[in-house]
Design a binder for these strands. Structure first.
Length: 305
DNA sequence: CTCCAGGGAGCCT
DNA sequence: AGGCTCCATGGA
């Protein structure tokens, strides 16, 4: 066991660990304060979160002075990558478009960052995300890890890594359905098989134009244009994707009524032009803000009553 | 009871 | 290319 801290002074710009980990970008971090999504922690908390990165169990929490960690190795480089603690992400946050709704989002959640999570867990997580609520994706990903992932001893617990491609490729469809995956069960098996066999992998999706990479990603089973956008944005470092889910499509109707939503490709191009220069970052703020706007209003009402 | 969730595959024209 | 229909499951 090692412990350490990444000092606040070593990364520029605002950072909010809770908003970053609980905004539906990643489903591989578990909050350790015993609360569940039915009993959410208040905003601005400093709970510990735990995951497995590069074969190391990592627990992390944010304090006023630092990002503190406990781990089975030194996770500093991995944490800096996953949370975007470099200069470029601070610059992107600082370059959000001056639109009312985006400014409101940035004002509500300063420090929300776009994650860069490992490829295969992200790919499978968003295959599962089709017609599924955010909180439920978390529990399904957790179930996959506990059933098929390698267990690591950590502080008296067994912490499970996300399963390797070959492990999920060899899963029985009926077993995955029993975990609650529903019709996505065969998609996960087929996509994991493609990665395990090397038919289509991360290497085929990087160092390409954004639209070329998105098209290539739809070669996986269970990956259409929207899920492809999520994988490119939250794992592969692309800054262009604006995943067009029900929330963002509704926001386009409300706030960009001149954009007629025809094909995915055309709608994508139009909204990316409005959210430039870093559409994916702006989209991530919008998605989180729109999903919590009502709760924020009641918080404000309670505060001012 | 109905409706919806960070949609996509398969099939048809 | 663009438009159906079906697909599991759980929470509100």
């Amino acid at each position: 066991m090692e412990t350490g801290a990444i000092p606040r002074s070593s990364y520029p710009g605002p950072f909010d660990l809770q908003a970053t980990l609980e905004s539906g970008q990643t489903f591989r971090w578990r909050r350790l304060d015993g609360r569940t999504y039915r009993d959410p922690a208040p905003r601005g908390g400093s709970a510990w979160y735990r995951s497995v990165l590069d074969g190391r169990v990592v627990a992390v929490r944010q304090t006023a002075d630092a990002l503190e960690w406990r781990s089975t190795g030194d996770p500093t480089a991995a944490l800096r990558r996953v949370f975007g603690l470099d200069e470029s992400m601070a610059t992107m946050i600082d370059s959000l478009p001056g639109l009312d709704v985006v400014e409101a989002a940035a004002d509500a959640f300063p420090g929300l960052r776009v994650v860069e999570e490992p490829f295969f867990p992200t790919l499978v997580s968003f295959v599962l995300s089709a017609q599924m609520r955010v909180e439920r994706i978390h529990s399904l990903v957790q179930g996959l890890a506990e059933t098929y992932g390698t267990a690591h001893a950590f502080e008296g617990d067994q912490v499970h890594a996300f399963p390797d491609p070959s492990s999920l490729a060899g899963a029985r469809e009926s077993a995955l359905r029993d975990l609650g995956l529903g019709y996505r069960a065969p998609y996960v098996i087929r996509t994991a098989s493609m990665v395990a066999a090397g038919d289509l992998t991360r290497a085929d999706l990087v160092d390409r134009s954004y639209e070329g990479a998105r098209e290539a990603a739809t070669g996986f089973v269970g990956v259409g244009e929207k899920v492809a956008d999520c994988v490119l944005l939250f794992s592969l470092g692309y800054t262009e994707p604006v995943p067009l889910d029900t929330w963002i499509r509704s926001a386009i109707e409300d706030h960009f009524p001149d954009i007629t939503q025809a094909s995915y490709a055309a709608t994508s191009r139009a909204i990316r032009e409005r959210l430039a220069p870093y559409p994916g970052v702006a989209q991530t703020y919008l998605f989180h803000y729109l999903r919590h706007r009502d709760a924020l209003r009641s918080e404000g009402a309670a505060t001012h009553s």
